[in-house]
């Protein structure tokens, strides 16, 4: 079964542990700026948004690559870069609507989330559940439950107000 990273930005506390563990996993050093995930913040306004590859079905990065260096890993479903083929033109960076295609200045090449080969470290370390690695088949159900919970809250309020009004 195929899994996917699901981000719930409301649960993100902005600690950036995902950036840290991602950089250690991929580059063997701690350097959040070399991670495949980024927590974008508007700190003084209290906004926190994690940015990571969505592994799009119809991936713009794949579409735009002039040498077909990007391909989908059949097992994990991740869009991966073949550095032997990549010519370093960075067109994929332009194409990605999320800014999820990064650039590593040390090795002078683009970088992106590869789901750590099936054990994504960001999800492993995220205690709040802001980043989860879930079966694609349960994706819809997760969202439904969240939506239903919000609705349930409204309904409770309405019924209490109704009974209080008497």
């Amino acid at each position: 079964m195929s899994k996917i990273l699901v981000i719930d930005h409301e649960k993100c506390t902005g600690c950036r542990l995902c950036e840290l563990v991602c950089s250690v996993k991929h580059e063997r050093v701690s350097n959040p700026y070399r991670a495949r995930i980024k927590i974008v913040k508007w700190e003084m306004a209290g906004k926190i948004i994690p940015v990571v590859c969505q592994q799009c079905e119809d991936a713009p990065c794949m579409g735009v690559c002039p040498v077909n260096a990007l391909s989908r890993n059949a097992e994990t479903g991740a869009v991966e870069i073949d550095y032997d083929v990549c010519i370093g033109c960075r067109m994929c960076m332009n194409a990605c609507p999320f800014g999820a295609m990064g650039y590593d200045w040390v090795n002078s090449h683009v970088i992106k989330c590869d789901l750590c080969g099936g054990d994504p470290q960001c999800a492993r370390f995220c205690e709040t559940g802001a980043i989860q690695y879930v079966e694609k088949a349960t994706l819809g159900a997760l969202k439904q439950r969240k939506g239903a919970a919000a609705l349930a809250e409204v309904m409770t309020k309405v019924s209490t107000a109704y009974s209080e009004a008497g």
Binding site: M1, S2, K3, E75, T76, G117, G118, D119, R124
Partner: peptide, 10 residues
């Protein structure tokens, strides 16, 4: 991905 190839997330 098969369960056996999945790394053990402790």
């Amino acid at each position: 991905m098969s369960e056996s190839t999945k790394k053990n997330t402790d």
